[in-house]
């Protein structure tokens, strides 16, 4: 994340694409649960990033910046996809919250399926932290929230994952996160 990029330089954006695209793609795969949708969102995110590349400021890492665009697009994509399906809409009216039934995940405890049941912002925090190795500050820059909100999201994501996955699967207590647990995270 510490690579030097020049805002507005097409060559530097090509370099950013080569290094960040696989990581962004995997983040979106964890959020969306489908490689085709992840690729579509990732490409759209790089298109949007390329249009705004001249306005990028080096105070935030370029990969975190493009991650922020990609996560926002994944959130919009999941929201639209959820509203497109009538069954999912009815399910949402009857049981607001998750688009995928947690009981279905419990019968087939797959980690990516479990991540898909999480709200996109929580899933993104988990992937950025435990797969890409971002710290709270970098996650905050990538998601456009404060570090305290990042800690709250990580804690709530861990609680939901622990409820869905194998109880023997080790997740440390929420107190391990440094952020204030009393803060409520902003979820749509």
């Amino acid at each position: 994340m510490g690579e030097a990029f020049t805002p507005g330089s097409p060559d530097d954006f090509d370099r950013l694409y080569q290094t960040a695209y696989p990581r962004v793609f995997r983040t979106l795969s964890a959020i969306l649960g489908d490689p085709a949708e992840a690729e579509d969102c990732a490409q759209d995110a790089f298109v949007q990033g390329f249009q705004a590349w001249a306005r990028w400021r080096p105070d935030a890492p370029a990969e975190a910046w493009i991650h922020r665009i990609a996560v926002n697009r994944a959130i919009s994509y999941r929201r639209r996809a959820r509203l497109r399906t009538i069954g999912e809409t009815l399910r949402r009216l009857g049981r607001p919250g998750h688009g995928v039934d947690p009981a279905e995940v419990a019968t087939r405890p797959d980690l990516l399926q479990a991540l898909r049941t999480l709200p996109p912002k929580l899933a993104a925090a988990i992937v950025l932290r435990h797969y890409h190795g971002y710290n709270n500050r970098e996650i905050a820059a990538a998601l456009g929230v404060s570090e305290r909100t990042v800690g709250t999201r990580l804690r709530q994501a861990a609680e939901r994952l622990r409820a869905m996955l194998d109880p023997a699967f080790s997740l440390e207590p929420p107190s391990a996160f440094s952020s204030d647990q009393r803060e409520s995270y902003a979820e749509d």
Partner: peptide
């Protein structure tokens, strides 16, 4: 990429997540 400041979750979760996403 800087190292993670702390590791609140166990290594089992990270390895499982990494193997799932690397596929």
């Amino acid at each position: 990429m800087p190292k993670i400041d702390d590791s609140p979750l166990g290594p089992g979760f990270e390895s499982r997540l990494r193997s799932a996403l690397d596929r």
